[in-house]
Amino acid sequence: QTVHVKGVQYHFPNPEEAVKFALKVAKDLGGRVEFHGDEIHVE
C-alpha cells in the first residue's frame, strides 16, 4: 500500500497502517485523503 503526501511516497505492508497514517497526516496538514485503487493520496 502506497501513501502519497506532497510528492513523497510512503510504503506500508499493511493497508490498515497506511490508512491510519494517511488520516493522521491529512488531519495534521488540514488536507483530505483520496483513495485511488491501491494508492492513497493526501491532498
Rank of each mutant, 00 (worst) to 15 (best):
Q1I: 15
Q1S: 14
Q1Y: 15
Q1F: 15
T2R: 06
T2F: 07
T2V: 13
V3F: 01
H4G: 03
V5G: 01
V5K: 01
K6H: 14
K6P: 02
K6W: 13
K6C: 11
K6M: 15
G7S: 05
V8G: 05
Q9G: 05
Q9N: 07
Y10Q: 02
Y10E: 01
Y10H: 07
H11K: 09
H11Q: 08
F12E: 00
F12H: 02
F12R: 00
P13V: 12
P13T: 14
N14E: 06
N14F: 06
N14R: 06
N14Y: 06
N14S: 14
P15Y: 15
E16L: 10
E16P: 05
E17Q: 10
E17W: 06
A18K: 01
V19P: 01
V19S: 05
K20G: 06
K20R: 12
K20M: 10
F21V: 02
F21Q: 02
F21S: 02
F21W: 13
A22Q: 00
A22N: 00
L23E: 13
L23D: 09
L23M: 13
K24W: 09
K24R: 10
V25K: 07
V25W: 10
V25C: 07
A26V: 05
K27V: 09
K27G: 10
K27L: 12
K27W: 10
K27C: 09
D28G: 07
L29S: 10
G30R: 07
G30L: 07
G30I: 04
G30S: 07
G31D: 03
G31K: 03
G31F: 11
G31S: 05
R32S: 09
R32T: 11
V33M: 07
E34D: 07
E34M: 13
F35W: 13
H36R: 15
H36L: 11
G37Q: 07
G37M: 06
D38N: 14
D38V: 09
E39V: 11
E39C: 06
E39I: 12
I40L: 08
I40N: 01
H41V: 09
H41C: 07
H41A: 04
H41P: 01
H41K: 07
V42Q: 00
E43A: 13
E43C: 11
